[in-house]
Structures are given as structure tokens and as C-alpha cells.
Design a protein around this nucleic acid. Structure first.
Lengths: 233, 233
DNA sequence: TAGTGGTCTAGACCACCGG
DNA sequence: CGGTGGTCTAGACCACTAT
């Protein structure tokens, strides 16, 4: 039997979590005040605070001033998604990555993109279509619009062999980002680019970013058949 | 001009974040030691610590003991997804929710489910097919397997009009959860249940949970056409 | 208004890891 | 081994809100 003199906040968190898992406190129940838990476990109140913040961030408990802490009644499943640069994602699988620009040019943004940016009038932006390739096979087709008002420098970058995303991510931090995931039926065009058949179901990720209130870029990443987004809690 | 005597950790975080946004420190650059920042800004080191932890959690900086803090070279887009109970999700849109069990019974798990659970041999589990309905229209078809070894109580619950998920989420906390998102082509069966047409592209969410090493449940949620998962950073 | 969580501080010590 | 981030403590005050 080991005697631990100093409790870490993780110990405290695990203890409280265990109370919940073994139904000492069930959904909707009110937990003791931080101070009482601190005294009971023999640590400082701030250590309990730290543990509680973690449980709260994980969506396990809900805390309110004066109201105390209660075990969440309707737990949500809260997951953290990391969406890496595509090149890194491919390389992490041990595959060979390559990139190919399909088209590049200024054009009026379509209505859908204007809506994403929350713009009424149509404006000209830089459109880049590109293909990410994993082990010689099409991996992700990306259809991107870049606001050259916000990012004029992009016009002087050679995007024929390097992804616009890599440049943006290193040089243009964003302050806001909208993410969308959904499924689409492959068009003839999609099918040709991704080397699959029309009507195949494809997983799509859309990302739109701003710096302050200024739109930076909006990208639709159409993945090849079989693509899965995975995360673990 | 207001004079703020006490800096909150959010102020400190925003200050440091601003340094990064305006390229005072760019990707790969090393930031000053916490203590120096604390002195410069006029707050305690622990306040800087709190701010830095937040930036680190957001994937903006990377911290190493002795190595100091640096602005991440390959920023990932890190998003937090909340997956609520379907009933709550529907109600939050202001729609009327209803639930309908399609089938229920013990059966041998198929290979795919065994793989999700990491099981070799096939075992019998409780399979429940059900339909979540939003404003009289099919919303999500769920195909669920529940391990009755881990959750024997489920057999005495009436699942004809209430979702198994609601009961599980309130009564069986999990310690581990795998999440998967992808697209599928609607089968004849899918199409019939979701009132759509075969070959339509459907967005699927799969969730598999364990308590300790014991499998609890694995569910495939096939959403109706047009469903989108959305999050914001 | 009183009780509870949220935060800040100053100081101490620990754990990790680069030079 | 020394320097950096990570954590704990004790105490104080603040901010929100249930009662």
C-alpha cells in the first residue's frame, strides 16, 4: 500500500469521476462544494477546482456559481477533432504524398460561397482546384476560394505544386472557423477527378475562416470513397 | 482610456494570441519564458501559465519543459464536437421529436461490429433498429448492438417508445468512446426507412463505447439526406 | 443577500529534458 | 546539471445567481 501525500488534480478528477461511474452520484445529482471535497480528500480547494474544470470541459458535470456542481443530466458526447494538413495526414499513414493543381484563376464567387462568408453581393476571389494524392491515388479533391482583399500576398505565391492550405496555415492565422461535414453523391466531374464512379457517396469537409470579420478562405474538401474521420475519447 | 489593474488570464491569452496574429511571433518562433511575460505584462506567472495552457489546448502553441514555448509550426485545426442526444437536437431546432422502434432481438453480431469492439469470436448481443423522427419526417435511422453481458438491465427496459441511447447515456457512463464519420450510398432498405431514394448519399456517424475494457454498445446512425454536422471555432 | 464557483497572487517544489 | 514548464498551497477577493 502506497501512501500518497500530495494529490494531483488528476487523482482528484479520477476520484470524482469514479464516484459518478459507480453511481455514488448519478445524473442530475448535486456534488458537494469544492471546499468540502478538498477537505475530504485532503488537498487545496484550487486542486479540486482544477479537477472540476476538467470534468466540466469534458461535459461530465455542470457548474454554476451559487448553484454548485451537478452531474450532467443530458450528457453530450464531446469529442475533439484534429484536422491536420492533408500532407501530414497522408505522411502519418506512411504513404507518399503529392499535390496537383487543377485550375487557378479569379472569378465571381458563387452564391453558396457568398453565403458561407455571410456576404450579400458577389465579389471576385481566387479560385483554386487541386488534388491531394496518396500513393499515386486520388485522395482529396479540394475546391477553394481565397479572398485576395484579405490575402493579397497569395497572388505572388506559386501554387502549382504546393497546397494553398499549407501557405495559409503558416502565414495567415484565423480568428474564426466554421466547419461542416456531410455526404454528397459524386458528380461526373468528381468521379473523373477522384477516379471513381458517379453516384458514389463521398464524405465532404467544408472549412471557412476569417480574421476578425474579414473572410480569408472557404474550402470544400471532397474525399475519395472510403474516407473516414475518426476520433477517440 | 481605462486602466486595468488586474489582468485576467483571458487578457493575457488574447495579448499573446494577438502577438501571433500580427506576426510579432510567427510559426516556429520561440516565445519568451512565462516568467518574463508575466513581468512584462505585470501579472503572476500562474496567470501566464493559465493563458498558455489555453493556447496549448487550442493547438496554437506547443510547450516543452526546458524547451520553452513555441508557436506551432504545423497548426492543426482543432474543433470540439458536441454530439447531443438526438431528441435534444431535434427539439433544439424547434421541431417535434418522435421515436419508433423498428426491430429488437438477440442475434450474433456481424463481423463488422465484432471488429469495432475488438472481439475475435462472435457473441450474441441485443440488436435494436430504430427511427428518430423530426416533424413527422424520418431523421436518423439507428442500428444498434448492445452487449447484454455488460448491461443486463437493458433487457428489462421498454425500448418500444424510448431510445436505448437515452437510457444508456443516463445509466451507463462510458470510459472510452470511438467515433467515426463517413458517407454511404443508400441501400434499398435505407431508402425505404428514410423515405428517400436508393443511391442517395447519406452521412453516417458511428459510436462505440466501453466501460473499462468491456464493450457497452456500438451504434451506426444513418442520417437522412441533407444532414450536416457543424461546429465553430 | 448570502453562498458558491472563478480567479489572482506569491511562493515553493517537482518533473522533464536540452545542452 | 540547470532551466523551463507543471503543479500544489493558502489566502484573498470577485462575480454570478439561487433563494
Amino acid at each position: 500500500m502506497t501512501l500518497q501525500l500530495r494529490l494531483s488534480w488528476k487523482d482528484v478528477r479520477d476520484t470524482i469521476h469514479a464516484w459518478i461511474l459507480e453511481s455514488t452520484y448519478g445524473p442530475g445529482d448535486k456534488l458537494p462544494r469544492d471546499e468540502d471535497i478538498a477537505e475530504q480528500l485532503g488537498c487545496a480547494r484550487s486542486t479540486v477546482q482544477r479537477a472540476m474544470r476538467n470534468l466540466s470541459d469534458s461535459g461530465i458535470v455542470e457548474r454554476k456559481r451559487k448553484g454548485g456542481t451537478q452531474v450532467r443530466l443530458d450528457p453530450v458526447t464531446r469529442a475533439t477533432l484534429d484536422i491536420p494538413i492533408t500532407r501530414k495526414e497522408v505522411e502519418a499513414k506512411g504513404s507518399a504524398y503529392s499535390y496537383q493543381r487543377i485550375s487557378e484563376g479569379m472569378a465571381d464567387i458563387p452564391l453558396g460561397i457568398a453565403a458561407r462568408f455571410g456576404l450579400g453581393a458577389s465579389v471576385k476571389m481566387l479560385r483554386i482546384e487541386a488534388l491531394h494524392i496518396s500513393d499515386q491515388r486520388p485522395y482529396i479533391y479540394e475546391d477553394r476560394w481565397i479572398n485576395t482583399e484579405t490575402v493579397p500576398e497569395i497572388l505572388s505565391i506559386d501554387l502549382s505544386s504546393e497546397s494553398a492550405n499549407e501557405w495559409l496555415v503558416r502565414n495567415k492565422p484565423f480568428s474564426r472557423c466554421d466547419l461542416r461535414f456531410y455526404a454528397v453523391k459524386a458528380t461526373e466531374y468528381n468521379a473523373k477527378i477522384l477516379a471513381t464512379t458517379p453516384n458514389e457517396a463521398l464524405f465532404v469537409m467544408e472549412r471557412t475562416t476569417w480574421i476578425g470579420t474579414q473572410p480569408i478562405t472557404s474550402v470544400k474538401a471532397v474525399t475519395s470513397p472510403g474516407y473516414q474521420l475518426f476520433t477517440q475519447i
